[in-house]
Design a protein around this nucleic acid. Structure first.
Lengths: 160, 160
DNA sequence: GCAAGATGTTTCGCGTGCGAAATATCGATG
DNA sequence: CATCGATATTTCGCACGCGAAACATCTTGC
């Protein structure tokens, strides 16, 4: 809503530093996921999908897209390649024939069990070294921040 | 370093939430950059490159890669397309003929001036709504976290 | 029951993004 | 000065990742 005022320089510096840190953490987390996935001859996104399906069972393609925060068209491609490798099956739903349910195959389950290590182990360890208070603060502030951004995005789109 | 112990469930939940928030913020920041870039018929990375070159002048391809945290091979592609559009020039360095310096063209500069809005305006606004204390805390904790991860990555790579 | 719109998925074209191998040049060592 | 290892960039093949358009199926209004 209220259009952002020009901010003071030191705030800008802090913002830059915060964004820098977030970018770094994100990049690193992705790199690590990829590295873990490689041990099972998977790509990062594929490992994510396998783990999700292992934990919560079949999902429609759209539900899966929501989970991993990607567009349907992206997930279609990922599932194509996983199906080709025999990791998942596409099962047309009988109730609504538009929807496709994605199901882990035996091979897929085997792989999921094999890579039991959580991809985020390193982050967990790093976070664990923070004090309990710091953890709580971090979560609180990040959540608040995410919520604000979400609101702005949601009802924004009016001003340049 | 000490191998990570299995962590308690509530810590795991907090970690998941924190990672979730970071993922969200990152994704959103990227989406916003893209949207801003679109106004100038640029892609997200291209806008980033244009803005960097505007602010600090010519850079070698490697220096540019470092700045935007991407591999050289990725940046080669980005610069290829930008050169095709007449936004930048490749200038072979005379001192060291291996290096290529990337230089904004007049057209590139014009575009950079045109998109004067900071892509991160929305984040700045969101962060600005946090209290000063929260901002400081967030920065402190994120920095600490990034540093820890960095250390782990740096001297890790020993255990499975 | 059927036309019109809504919803779920795929297709297409394009732009990243990466790692490994190729290429070009530099610098040091003999 | 020939060669060998280091450094800068490009090429290649592949896997995302997106938005727009196409397609299939469902639902609603009539």
């Amino acid at each position: 809503m209220s259009r952002p005022e020009p901010l003071s320089p030191e705030v800008n510096a802090a913002v830059d530093a915060i964004l820098e840190a977030i970018l770094y953490l994100y990049t690193e987390s992705r790199r690590i996921t990829k590295e873990v996935a490689k041990r099972a001859s998977l790509t990062g996104p594929q490992l994510t999908v396998v783990k999700i399906l292992e934990q919560i069972g079949d999902l429609s393609l759209s539900e899966l897209s929501d989970r991993i925060r990607a567009q349907n068209s992206t997930v279609t491609g990922i599932i194509d390649r996983m199906e080709r490798e025999g990791l998942v099956d596409r099962v047309r739903s009988t109730e609504d024939r538009r929807v496709v349910r994605i199901r882990l195959t035996k091979k897929g389950f085997a792989l999921a069990r094999e890579v039991s290590v959580e991809p985020m182990e390193m982050f967990r360890a790093a976070l664990d070294e923070l004090s309990g208070i710091e953890q709580r603060d971090l979560l609180t502030i990040l959540t608040k921040l995410a919520k604000r951004v979400q609101m702005m995005v949601h009802d924004g789109r009016k001003e340049t």
